[in-house]
């Protein structure tokens, strides 16, 4: 459990510790992670809160600091089908940082959840100021997509 100051706020070092554990940022240098930590805000949600619905326009990346998130998809009859549970250090919506596409599934908190959230506008600003970070991030995204394609093939 991450130590909370002032009613659940994380100190900058704690944000860096969390971001460093997330595979999306793990290849970045600590200096870059530090910079990203400055645009990552802490958000806490109660059990049952829906982070986003399938079909919403996505513009935020959620990194799970604590708690679990259910990923759900609508069936043809309108009922929700449970797809997966995401846990600590998992993340949701990485593509929304660079592209305003619609969400492909619904994400709902399962118990009290703490997140680090990065907004697309902030990320774009950061990428403009620090192209090296954007480059490292894109490399990581490509590598993830490549492994996803390979997994699908096999």
């Amino acid at each position: 459990m991450i130590r909370h100051y002032d009613a659940g706020t994380m100190i900058p070092l704690e944000k860096i510790i969390v971001l460093n554990k997330v595979s999306l940022f793990s290849t970045l240098k600590t200096e870059d992670i530090h910079i990203i930590s400055t645009i990552a805000s802490e958000e806490v949600y109660d059990d049952g809160h829906t982070l986003f619905y399938e079909g919403d326009i996505g513009d935020r990346l959620f990194i799970i600091v604590d708690g679990e998130v259910m990923i759900l998809k609508k069936n043809k009859d309108g009922t929700e089908k449970h797809l997966a549970i995401l846990k600590e250090n998992d993340f949701l919506g990485e593509l929304s940082l660079f592209d305003a596409e619609t969400r492909t599934a619904t994400a709902r908190c399962h118990g009290l959840c703490t997140f680090l959230v990065i907004e697309r506008n902030d990320m774009e600003q950061l990428a403009h100021e620090y192209p090296a970070i954007a480059f490292g991030f894109i490399k990581m995204l490509i590598s993830r997509m490549r492994s996803m394609v390979l997994n699908n093939k096999t």
Partner: peptide, 18 residues
């Protein structure tokens, strides 16, 4: 110090939703 202390209340980037 900056790494170990929370941001000042007026500038801190923390929201609380319950």
């Amino acid at each position: 110090r900056e790494l170990l202390q929370t941001a000042k209340p007026d500038t801190r980037n923390i929201k609380f939703f319950v």
